[in-house]
Design a protein around this nucleic acid. Structure first.
Lengths: 224, 224
DNA sequence: CTAGCTTGTGCACAAGTGTTCACTCAAACT
DNA sequence: AGTTTGAGTGAACACTTGTGCACAAGCTAG
């Protein structure tokens, strides 16, 4: 082996460990580059160079950029799912749900800024495969949230469709909020507080509409 | 002049006309390519080729890709603004606002599919300049909507901040809806009806929350 | 009608891209 | 012990990319 000191440490490493190490080096490198570029304009060589590895070594881990992208999505949503499971375990009290949920979201966005930035951007842009994968994950969140919502007052008698509508609205608001936070300058405490405040207000407004909803079943609500 | 038949017609053209003609040829070419690629991964040569023009001719119209992107954003929002002004001129009746607004949006998305796709994608991805330009335009819509909203019952006594919160929520929902429609397969009548239906329900839910809102001024609503 | 400005051409260049191939050399297996 | 395996190397390929420069040709101004 040449001089791979950028990823190697001088500790005796098993082969699996070493391979995994450069694998995450590649993923991290891509994630780092994705702060400034879009995934579609990200080159295989570019990533390899940033990871301190020769281009051909890339193929030992992924056989295309697209596959690396999917791996990134996987990682991102793995941690996100873990967060949500933890949050659900806390079994938030009804009166704090909004404030607590937003706070958890914000904390997580900061803890995984790069992952979030990547997901937020590739969600609507770039390669169809990635876009679809991300959309699928988000839709999954929505449906999970829908079943969770069914345990709240008023909502226990809602139709499945209406619960889905509500869940989608909430998730959309959360996604928008996450995007705004990710894009905010990292120093802007004041700006971030405003974003959070607005998110809380929006969610509260939605919540206020819930008791007024007449669960008219499959019938479309009378808009006209 | 060589053989520019791809953009020329055999009618005698004034110089301004001819220049404008290849200019829109370039813009259209870019727009067409943006159906499949992201703007960041879009090359100058690629656009020129698609427009049936030699690469160096590109510089006669834009001196960078970024400038072409800004021109695209300009065009997109020019038509969008015109639509909104027309819609506002109709002075929608209170009982139909939601249904009518959504319908207008859907119609416009179909009429300008490529522009919308471009804007929707570059809104969160790609080059910072474009992202910022798009975000600025959308924020402008929000604030215009906020002043419009002030003429509705209940809302006339809301604080400016709260009106902004509401407007942002509505615009976000509209943007999400537009994105979903743009991404839906062009044949999917059924899917689109569902998207529209969900959008209407979401907006209705928001509207139902409005009368419950206590306009507590600058004070944060009691969430805890 | 002539002179010139401007739009589009053609060619060249350096730099970067994805992918292939034969190769090293140490960990892992027998 | 000796052998196999496979992660990483380095050179080479056929492209594509952005940009510079000299040139052609027709609309347009004088």
């Amino acid at each position: 082996m040449g001089h791979t000191d950028s990823v190697n440490t001088r500790a005796p490493l098993t082969r699996r460990e070493q391979k995994e190490r450069t694998r995450v080096a590649l993923l991290d490198a891509a994630l780092r580059l994705l702060e400034r570029k879009s995934f579609g304009s990200l080159g295989l060589r570019e990533v390899a160079r940033e990871a301190g590895v020769v281009p051909t070594a890339f193929y030992r881990h992924f056989d295309s950029m697209e596959e690396l992208g999917l791996a990134l999505i996987d990682d991102s949503f793995r941690t996100l799912r873990r967060m949500i499971r933890d949050a659900r375990a806390q079994d938030l009290a009804f009166e704090h749900v909004i404030r607590d949920s937003v706070e958890i979201l914000v904390r997580h966005v900061h803890a995984h800024r790069l992952h979030f930035r990547f997901v937020a951007r590739e969600r609507s842009s770039g390669m169809p495969v990635l876009r679809q994968a991300i959309r699928a994950e988000i839709r999954l969140f929505s449906s999970e949230l829908a079943t969770d919502l069914a345990r709240f007052p008023f909502l226990d008698r809602w139709s499945t469709e209406d619960l889905g509508v509500l869940a989608t609205l909430i998730v959309n608001t959360m996604v928008s909020t996450a995007e705004e936070i990710v894009d905010a300058p990292s120093g802007g405490q004041q700006l971030e507080r405003e974003i959070v405040r607005r998110a809380e207000k929006q969610l509260l407004l939605i919540a206020l509409g819930v008791p007024q909803w007449r669960s008219s079943g499959a019938e479309a609500p009378d808009v006209s």
